[in-house]
């Protein structure tokens, strides 16, 4: 009984202390709020799962660097309006994040200007920040890539179709990661297109062993792209790829437990395509396409 009373008292004290700190900030009645000027029309055309995941995070730092940063999260659930009690002073925007990155057909406009601006928060006042959006063009799937036969080593990036093996000639990749390494191939990021990677062996960096992307600007044969609903690529009859050869991760797909990976093996040339379905939705979040011998090695 004495233990219980001690526990109860300590918890009460902890709660009291926490609420005191919070109350101290609230005493100033100074708030900082963020909202969006207009939700882009393209938002309505998104998949429900992607809509639900959409989140704009605004991180602000006060003039006193010891203060904790203020984080404002704007989601469809709070109608893209968020407000926080803060200590009066000057604040600057440190970071603006938009998620799911690469899958949204819009981005926050003038982030640089926003970061340069100082927001003065006064007691008993609300300082508001309004965010504007700019459209980001995600390419239409071209007819040529639609017609391309499965497992062809071709990729549509924006409006052009490239041979995957020749990507290094058309785009710049950050190969510094390979320097001084040997053995296992590594994913090398593209400097021009965020969310696009190629698989290179440190021993033979000129040969591309695979491609992976989470960017919505990339499309594979048949129109396979990130953000595509599960039934469009994995349905046994209607899907581009059909029933997978095998799966990894959590069988409880889209149940907020763990990601699920759908893998397709092309018996003819041992190519493997691996698609990640996030724990929070039923769509392709990331696509990995590994070629022949390397893919076979990786599987075994």
């Amino acid at each position: 009984m004495r233990n219980l009373i001690t526990l109860f008292l300590s918890v009460t004290m902890m709660i009291g202390l926490c609420s005191c700190t919070d109350r101290k900030t609230k005493l100033y009645k100074a708030t900082i709020s963020a909202s969006v000027s207009e939700i882009p029309e393209s938002f309505d055309s998104l998949l429900e799962d992607i809509k639900d995941e959409t989140c704009i995070t605004l991180i602000l730092q006060g003039e006193n660097s010891d203060d904790d940063p203020v984080s404002l999260e704007l989601t469809p659930f709070n109608e893209f309006i968020s407000s926080e009690y803060v200590v009066p002073g000057e604040y600057v925007v440190c970071d603006v994040k938009l998620e799911p990155q690469f899958l949204l057909p819009f981005a926050v406009k003038d982030v640089k200007k926003l970061k340069e601006k100082k927001f003065t928060v006064k007691a008993e006042h609300d300082t508001s920040i309004t965010l504007n959006f700019k459209p980001v063009s995600l390419p239409e799937t071209s007819k040529d890539i639609l017609k391309t036969s499965p497992y062809t080593h071709r990729i549509q990036i924006d409006d052009k179709i490239y041979d995957i093996e020749s990507l290094t000639q058309n785009f710049e990749f950050d190969k510094s990661i390979l320097e001084g390494r040997t053995g296992e191939p590594l994913w090398v990021g593209c400097k021009d297109i965020a969310g696009l990677h190629i698989l290179l062996s440190p021993d033979k960096p000129e040969e591309i062993l695979g491609v992976s992307f989470s960017s919505g600007r990339c499309v594979l044969w048949g129109g396979l792209r990130t953000g595509m609903p599960l039934e469009e690529f994995a349905h046994s009859e209607k899907g581009i790829l059909g029933t997978p050869s095998y799966c990894d991760g959590s069988p409880l797909i889209g149940q907020d437990i763990d990601d699920t990976y759908f893998s397709y093996l092309n018996i003819k040339n041992d190519d493997i395509i691996k698609i990640r379905v996030p724990h929070s939705g039923l769509y392709a979040e990331y696509i990995e396409f590994c070629f022949g011998s390397y893919a076979k090695e990786a599987v075994s």
């Binding site: 039934e231 994995a234 029933t243 095998y246």
Partner: peptide
């Protein structure tokens, strides 16, 4: 509805 196979067939993939 989503992937056109039944529960047993689906679990066999894992």
């Amino acid at each position: 509805n989503i992937i056109g196979i039944n529960l047993i067939q689906y679990l066999k993939l894992f």
